[in-house]
């Protein structure tokens, strides 16, 4: 198979830039409106031109954010609500490692927690997205949650659909939502212990046996001239 680079011409580049500046302005305007409505609740924000807008808010204002989005900012459509655990992951550093790094060992040497767009100070961050179905523009909201008190005000008073999402977040991360009376197991059987999406939740099957796909790994034909594939993965 012949692989060629995509045919980029200067004209399309220029067109793309023009589009980007236009949408950028839209997001700047939306951010200005959000800041105006929410005031001090906005901690930090990030815009990737032509793509998306991230706004980090305080945990205390979490419920007001939903209310303002739906009733004052026109962001009526509820996309999703979830969370991120920013604890460094024991997975994916090395293609050679057929068994995962020991999560406990990783915890022993404290690696710095690096958060994503719009910053963050804590291990757990709430993540939610709302959308404007008329203007076709969306915002991703984030909020820091301190480790000692993993709870946030509920969104269910504004967005009815948030109930299941909050149940899922509670189940997967152990984050509770004040005001959501129905925080019961959604996916897992009632006797399940642990919060699977936390980074320190181990997948026990992987500890017991290595990745079974290892039997299929053979040197690619002609791999020698392009450099050793295994070394490329280990950095």
């Amino acid at each position: 198979m012949i692989r060629l680079s995509s045919a980029d011409t200067p004209t399309t580049d220029a067109a793309d830039e023009a589009v980007e500046t236009v949408t950028d302005e839209r997001r700047e305007a939306l951010l200005a409106r959000i800041t105006e409505v929410l005031g001090d609740a906005v901690v930090q924000s990030h815009i990737r031109p032509g793509d998306d807008l991230w706004v980090r808010v305080t945990r205390e204002a979490w419920a007001d954010v939903a209310d303002a989005s739906r009733n004052r900012l026109g962001l009526r459509f509820f996309d999703f609500l979830s969370a991120i655990d920013w604890l460094p992951s024991p997975f994916g550093r090395d293609m050679d490692a057929q068994e995962d790094l020991d999560a406990d060992a990783a915890a022993a040497e404290p690696a710095p927690i690096v958060t994503g767009y719009a910053g963050g100070d804590t291990r757990f961050q709430l993540l939610a997205r709302v959308f404007d179905v008329d203007e076709h523009i969306g915002v991703t909201f984030k909020a820091d949650l301190p480790d000692e008190d993993l709870s946030a005000p509920t969104w269910t008073r504004t967005f009815l659909g948030a109930e299941w999402h909050e149940r899922e977040t509670w189940e997967m991360f152990g984050i509770s939502f004040t005001g959501n009376a129905n925080l019961a197991h959604l996916y897992l059987p009632g006797a399940f212990e642990g919060n699977p999406l936390r980074k320190d939740f181990p997948l026990l099957a992987r500890r017991v046996k290595p990745w079974p796909g290892i039997v299929d790994v053979e040197p690619m034909p002609g791999a020698g001239d392009e450099g050793d594939s295994d070394e490329g993965g280990a950095s």
């Binding site: 509820f78 996309d79 999703f80 979830s82 991120i84 655990d85 992951s89 997975f91 994916g92 550093r93 090395d94 293609m95 690096v114 994503g116 993540l127 997205r129 991703t140 009815l160 659909g161 109930e163 299941w164 993965g233």
Partner: peptide, 24 residues
């Protein structure tokens, strides 16, 4: 919602599936 840390694997993938909201 894909969060990458420059590794071989995604750091976090939030899958927003349609039926979940539709059935709620």
């Amino acid at each position: 919602y894909v969060v990458s840390k420059g590794d071989l694997v995604p750091f976090r993938v939030k899958i927003r599936s349609a039926s979940f909201n539709n059935i709620s």
